[in-house]
């Protein structure tokens, strides 16, 4: 396993890019939504300013907060950033993709969620418990759909290694309906996992409807900043995952200057497109009732499972 220094350096650059660009994506989505609602909206760089402000503010902890509550922001940020660093962004051949494959990546995100839910339960308020309960429940229902759609992709690629999967997707010659099913399922899961409309509203503080926000009500200062940042990274991570797995065109296959630069431009353009699409979706849809979420997620699962059946019926048998 001789991996050149260049690749590792590029990998680190990629990880840093994911971490640093994440607030930008949030800014773009906010701006788009504002424009769609005929508002001028905050500047695109506003999320960076928010984070800076939060980092400077003093941190207040509840009296009975335990060490779990204090470590959560760090664990959350660390695991999310680590998960983000194994997804190919502009280069297919990624040495860190060997550390954790797609299943391990999902498990890292699950670890982050586990810790966050514990933090929600830590203080002992009704909101925290409610958020933790709902978040864990819905993500549990999303898990099979996510895994099944990953399965569909890895059945074709004969691998769960993200680099190999992206490479396979890049060299697909035929129209494969199963991929479309997997994409649809993964999009639905991504919306649910990131707590966007129609599952959760990231900008609400209305107690009966919130899921994610309810868990982090007690956080302040730099703790809050890290949590916000982590959820922005997660959004970018899912966007990049979808882009690299399903529309990888333009991604660099060799670590040379020119392909990498064009790949960067392509990636950026595709992320912006996804952001616009998400903004349009969020403006057009309303949040569904809490108990319709399971139906939504089971639809995602059915889609992914159909993808797998279609793969076996139409693509393997052929």
């Amino acid at each position: 396993m001789s991996i050149s220094i260049t690749l590792w350096v590029l990998n680190l650059v990629q990880a840093a890019l994911m971490v640093l660009a994440a607030p930008l994506l949030a800014g773009i989505i906010q701006k788009c939504k504002a424009r769609l609602q005929n508002r001028r909206g905050a500047p695109i760089l506003q999320p960076y300013r928010n984070l800076l402000k939060l980092f400077r503010k003093e941190t207040l902890l509840a009296e009975n907060a335990s060490w779990i509550f204090r470590t959560t922001p760090y664990v959350l940020f660390t695991t999310t950033a680590l998960a983000a660093s194994v997804v190919p962004v502009f280069l297919v051949d990624l040495p860190s993709a060997l550390i954790a494959d797609v299943i391990a990546m999902a498990a890292l995100l699950a670890l982050a969620r586990f810790w966050l839910a514990l933090a929600g339960m830590d203080i002992g308020t009704a909101f925290g418990g409610m958020g933790a309960s709902r978040e864990m429940t819905f993500s549990a229902l999303a898990e099979p759909a996510m895994l099944m759609s990953m399965f569909v992709m890895s059945l074709g690629a004969h691998s769960t290694n993200l680099s190999t999967m992206v490479e396979h997707a890049l060299h697909l010659e035929h129209l494969l309906p199963s991929v479309a099913f997997a994409l649809a399922a993964l999009l639905m899961v991504a919306i649910a996992e990131n707590g966007r409309i129609p599952i959760d509203n990231p900008s609400t503080h209305l107690e009966l409807t919130m899921i994610h926000e309810a868990m982090i009500l007690e956080y302040s200062g730099r703790h809050l900043a890290l949590i916000e940042w982590a959820s922005q990274i997660k959004l970018l991570l899912f966007a990049t995952l979808i882009i690299s797995l399903f529309v990888p065109w333009g991604i660099a296959e060799s670590a040379e200057v020119w392909p990498v630069l064009t790949a960067l431009v392509f990636w950026f353009g595709k992320v912006v497109l996804l952001a616009v699409a998400l903004a349009v979706l969020e403006t057009g849809l309303v949040k569904v009732r809490l108990f319709q979420v399971p139906e939504y997620l089971s639809t995602a699962f059915v889609l992914a499972f159909l993808g797998m059946l279609v793969h076996y019926i139409l693509e393997v048998g052929a």
Binding site: H174, L175, P177, L306, V310, E315
Partner: peptide, 14 residues
């Protein structure tokens, strides 16, 4: 033809 029919078939199923 095969590809077109495959896509159509999966659409029908969907």
């Amino acid at each position: 033809l095969q590809e077109a029919i495959s896509v159509a078939a999966s659409l029908m199923l969907l």
